[in-house]
Computed example of a mutant assay.
Amino acid sequence: MASVNTNAGAMVALQNLNKTNSQLQTVQNRINTGLAVSSAKDNGGIYAIAQNMRAEVGGLRAVTNSLDLAVSTVDVALAAGDAISDLLIEMKEKALAASDVSLDSASRTALDEDFKALRDQISTIVENAEFNGTNLIDGSSSGGISALANAKGTNTINVADEDMSLSGTILGLSSGTDIATQSDAAAAVTAIESALTNLNSALSRLGTGSKSLEIHKTFVSKLSDSLEKGIGNLVDADLAKESARLQSLQVKQQLGIQALSIANSAPSTVLGFFR
């Protein structure tokens, strides 16, 4: 039936053209964003999974920052402990020399001055072994330092503090320790040897804690990379395929416009019936 009121051909052509335009818009959006699933309307299930994984990655970034902070704090403590160990070795050398009964008073006095300077330097090092307000070796950080271990914040890695101050639990030296006499020097040698033994144990514990933090930091980095790769597998667009599809849809769009133009001109043939 020929009719000017209803053009079925134009309706079909328009439906096909609208469908092509919709597909073209989707492809252009994928090319613009690089994502096959950029919002929930693209694929609600995949989008929800990807968002959960993105939250996990964000949490792991916080874990990494926490681990970095803890590692730096422990490394500062280790550096200070190494310096204290060197000072104790020098102090033992001075004390051993001063314990010689044949030493004259002038030499003993000079050794004592050097000894006390080294002793006081330990206190200076301990007071300044601080990172971001935390000092693991001055006895002020009760319980040590904790770092986040997972993105939920339910697990932590702890490194205990070590009191390396002169009168602390590690060194056990008095702030007034000197080698002014032969007997004082002999006692100082014994005390320093004990302090060195305790200090080496403390440094070993700190080193183990620092290694644990570094190992977990490496694991968190690999886990984060794996999650990001998984997100990409879920939502990233294959741009090579989308580019080919874009060209195909552009041709279909032009053909659809041509088909609609032909369909729209069909009612004009009715005029031939009245000539």
Rank of each mutant, 00 (worst) to 15 (best):
G232W: 01
T197W: 07
G176T: 15
V27R: 02
E228K: 13
N200E: 15
K241Q: 12
R119N: 04
T26G: 02
T169P: 00
S107R: 12
T124R: 12
A202L: 05
D184N: 15
N52E: 09
S140I: 06
F131M: 12
V27S: 01
S107W: 05
M11C: 03
S265W: 00
G133L: 09
N128S: 13
D178S: 15
L78G: 02
L206A: 08
G176P: 00
M53S: 11
L196Y: 02
A117C: 06
G232Y: 01
V235T: 14
I89P: 00
S66F: 05
A195N: 09
V71G: 07
L171E: 07
T124C: 02
G153W: 06
A188D: 05
S107N: 15
I231C: 01
E93H: 07
E113H: 05
A237S: 12
A8S: 13
G44A: 14
R108G: 03
Q15C: 01
S224Y: 01
A237K: 05
A80Q: 02
N132R: 13
I215R: 09
A40N: 12
D163E: 13
L67D: 07
V4I: 15
T20P: 00
R30Q: 15
E193R: 09
S212D: 13
G207S: 05
N29K: 09
Q250V: 07
L173R: 09
R119T: 03
V159C: 02
L199H: 04
G209S: 09
A48N: 14
I122R: 02
E193F: 00
A13F: 00
S146D: 13
V71P: 00
A62T: 15
L271D: 14
I157C: 02
V4G: 04
G44K: 11
Q15Y: 09
L17A: 07
K41A: 14
K152Y: 03
G272A: 11
S72G: 06
T169D: 14
D86T: 10
S175T: 15
K94L: 11
A147Q: 05
H216V: 10
G144L: 04
L271V: 08
L69T: 14
D114Y: 01
A160W: 03
A50G: 01
N43S: 11
L249I: 06
M1G: 11
N52S: 11
A244R: 12
F274I: 14
A186F: 00
R30D: 06
N200A: 11
L24V: 04
I192F: 02
V101T: 15
S167K: 10
A180R: 03
N5K: 14
V74I: 10
K116Y: 02
G209N: 08
V37D: 04
T6V: 12
N21I: 08
E228R: 09
S243W: 04
A2N: 12
T156E: 12
T20V: 13
A151I: 07
A266E: 08
D138M: 05
L103I: 15
S224W: 00
A95V: 06
M53V: 09
A95G: 03
Q258C: 05
K116H: 03
G143W: 06
S105I: 13
T20E: 04
T33D: 08
F273L: 13
D236K: 10
L246N: 08
L17S: 07
L69W: 06
D236R: 05
G230H: 06
L14R: 14
T64Q: 15
Q250Y: 01
